[in-house]
Nucleic acid binder design. Structure first.
Length: 216
DNA sequence: GGCCAGGACACCA
DNA sequence: TGGTGTCATGGC
């Protein structure tokens, strides 16, 4: 157990040394982070930025803005993010739940016990584990670890998790072996993504990257 | 022109 | 529970 902690922290240090602190999530408000978390599902971030820019330009990036916006209009505005018919409905589900449970207030939402909140969020259709954890960690500053495709790819190549280990199993690797520190989890996941975009693509092995010698 | 991107869900065996 | 199809735009 202690060895795993040291291994995880060593990898973190290597990444931090190379890329520096990233200070995620790139957004102007917690609400923007929540919307971005849904929009970025299986999507290139550059496309998400275009959709976010559209929402900002139309002054719709608020809970009541999205609540009052007709579904068809919402789909059209977020079109560049791809899967716009799916994501517009998911955004509506999220907003409706936010109003039903917390009066449309993210502040009230995040004041709840975050472990119970996580379970509650997972019951909202369209919010899966990664999306929930992203909102909790980056918008709510709760100490939950975000597992994404890059995390699975990197740490399975490092031989630390099974490639098809499942979300909770991989999340546990970090949650069980690292201190529950939101700032650490924030930087760690951000660095994994930053590194992954360059070195952990699907059909690209780790040659040339700083973790090359560690990867299988 | 193909590949891929910071998933989630329904459906099936 | 595990595998597969579906949803879609846009950069490289």
């Amino acid at each position: 157990m202690k060895m795993m902690k040291e291994t995880l922290l060593r990898i973190f240090d290597l990444l931090l040394e190379k890329y520096g602190p990233l200070g995620w999530w790139p957004a102007d408000s917690p609400f923007e982070i929540c919307v971005g978390a849904i929009l970025t599902q299986n999507t290139n971030w550059l496309n998400v930025e275009k959709a976010i820019a559209n929402l900002k330009q139309e002054k719709l990036l608020t809970p009541h803005g999205l609540r009052d916006l007709p579904l068809e209009r919402l789909a059209a505005v977020i079109r560049p993010a791809g899967f716009f018919n799916v994501k517009s409905v998911r955004l509506k589900w999220f907003i409706n739940w936010l109003y039903d449970s917390y009066g449309g207030s993210l502040e009230r939402m995040f004041s709840a016990d975050w472990r119970e909140l996580r379970e509650e969020m997972l019951l909202v259709k369209g919010i899966g584990r990664e999306t929930a954890d992203s909102m909790l960690l980056y918008a709510g500053h709760k100490p939950t670890f975000v597992v994404d495709a890059y995390t699975v790819r990197l740490f399975s190549r490092l031989g630390l998790v099974r490639e098809n280990g499942g979300y909770e199993e991989i999340r546990s690797l970090f949650m069980d072996n690292l201190p529950g520190d939101a700032k650490l989890f924030n930087e760690y996941h951000a660095l994994i993504v930053r590194h992954g975009k360059e070195h952990c693509r699907k059909k690209q092995r780790c040659a040339g990257c700083i973790l090359h010698l560690l990867c299988r």
